[in-house]
């Protein structure tokens, strides 16, 4: 099964990026084989609408779930429309997050947990 994790770096030992729309990389990983692809986030410096754009980028990758730290209202709506499980509060390395997800320790969220513009810094 393919899932996506927001990441600060390009490999499985990188830390989970707590921002969704403006994270540095999206790591698309197969939870069984741990084969992965690191996609640089072109929306990192977007003026606005980063959550919406990133949501569509993730949707195109046809993943089952997204693991991230926080997700705002626009991104949430976009991911939900794409039928992707949204899991917030992920932290630590990408590898650890995948393990926790496989063990069922991470639960999907039912709503956005931060406001718009949270990732602006």
């Amino acid at each position: 099964m393919k899932i996506c994790i927001t990441s600060e770096g390009q490999d499985l030992d990188s830390q989970v990026d707590p921002r969704f729309g403006r994270c540095q990389y999206f790591i698309i990983v197969d939870t069984d084989s741990l084969e992965f692809e690191a996609v640089p986030n072109s929306n990192m410096e977007a003026m606005g609408g980063a959550g919406v754009q990133s949501g569509q980028l993730v949707a195109q990758k046809q993943v089952k779930a997204i693991l991230t730290g926080n997700v705002g209202p626009n991104a949430f709506q976009t991911l939900q429309a794409a039928g992707i499980d949204i899991i917030t509060g992920a932290a630590g390395s990408i590898r650890e997050a995948v393990e926790k997800y496989k063990k069922g320790e991470l639960k999907s969220t039912q709503g956005p947990n931060v406001n718009s513009k949270f990732g602006m810094r």
């Binding site: 929306n43 003026m47 919406v52 754009q53 949501g55 949707a59 046809q62 709506q77």
Partner: peptide, 21 residues
């Protein structure tokens, strides 16, 4: 130019969705 429209193509049936912000 402002990311105000999202288009989600559906995987199987072909029915997608368009979101306006």
């Amino acid at each position: 130019a402002y990311g105000a429209v999202a288009v989600i193509k559906s995987v199987d049936s072909g029915k997608g969705s368009v979101l306006v912000f």
